[in-house]
Design a protein around this nucleic acid. Structure first.
Lengths: 130, 130, 130, 130
DNA sequence: GTGGTCTAGACCACG
DNA sequence: GTGGTCTAGACCACA
């Protein structure tokens, strides 16, 4: 369900967050669907429950999940006000583009790449609402 | 010459590296031009010499600089073999683009953004216009 | 009769308690009126009977209900001695007001809010108009 | 500097957060002022460093602090966009007011209380900007 | 069984 | 010495 890469500099809890955020934003997980319990995820990924809990907690703070003590964690949907996330993404995007441009990668090539990514997505994730 | 932002989460040595890499790649610093000594940089930026040294060392490893014992560090130019770096950048780029697309940001808007970044760069470092 | 919100962080038994406390204090339920049995409530709300039992037990401790073994639970009225509860509420109230004032929310706006809350309450439970 | 109450239902990390948020919002701590290090706070309050770190991390996410690895944590100021915090506060406020009204506390008395809190604040925290 | 808090202690990168 | 991540394991309240 979630792929971890221990060699990646990105912390594990971030990888878990990104994984679930993707599933939610793509519509693979539906609203009110139950997530695996903290302990289940922890044992299935062979990592510490605290690490999973941190990922869940932060996703809850961001509005992707809601947790009910004693019952579990559930998909809340994609938060309307995700402007914060967009800012992050645009910042990462800008940084990458800037450096690519410095490395003499053309503006056209970059825009083509956007289209390619788009194509690839359409192929895979047809579940995403339109 | 180099602008540091202490509030930024990015480590100081990274900021120093990025600053010089930019100056080199933009052509502001010419090949074989001498960089300020580690001590000079350290005192002018009011930071630890170790931090500067690390930046210089890594830039040398990446091929942007060459060091001559007892004389200092000099600009080597923009390394040809930066394909590894490109791969990294494209991976980061693709991930950002993909999530932006999921968040209903249009392909056009993204491409426009590329152009904007390009513009902004041109504004700063006009020497790079090639 | 009682509205549950599973997404709310507030525990179910608290929601049940609050629901009945409101009905009693508003006069919707009259003194000596019988409450639904634990089993009835549990099945009508589709939750665990233990949860209902806990709500009833605590309301009894607080003086809102009295239980008669073998016959059920009945409304006792609004307990006079709720000064402890008042203290708690005033403490929470003061803390909220203080921080709102620090955040540059005006005294007038806050007082208007009190009136609004009052209005909204009147709308729902008009029997409480005294 | 910060007062902990172990008997309070409020988690310790929340108490720490509230304490620092208050100091910042009141202007007692100035922008760019350094906070005690995680380990200092932990030992001075006799609690685990992880608990302090969680408080600091969340305050950073909320925009009150910024942290620089290797240097420390510093006051960022009062985030402009604290609408989320306001919502929380108003929710707590409304809940308290509603229940007070049910307990037959008059609207006038409540508004007077707001004024009293305001008075008390003026007396103490004259450092708060105007 | 669930999520939530807290502790104790480890290791890392940064300066 | 700083913050940041992670582990291991405990205890609690809730259902």
């Amino acid at each position: 369900m979630i792929q971890l890469n221990y060699r990646d500099a990105k912390p594990i809890y971030e990888q878990v967050k990104d994984g679930f955020r993707r599933l939610i934003v793509q519509g693979v997980m539906e609203v009110d669907e139950k997530l695996p319990s903290v302990r289940e995820m922890a044992s299935s990924l062979a990592i510490n429950p605290n690490t999973i809990q941190r990922a869940y907690r932060e996703l809850e703070q961001e509005g992707y999940l809601y947790a009910v003590a004693g019952r579990g964690s559930f998909v809340a949907g994609v938060p309307e006000e995700d402007s914060a996330r967009r800012k992050e993404l645009f910042a990462a995007f800008d940084a990458a583009v800037e450096e690519l441009l410095y490395l003499r990668v053309g503006e056209e090539e970059i825009c083509q790449r956007v289209a390619q990514v788009h194509q690839k997505m359409m192929g895979k994730g047809e579940k995403a609402k339109e």
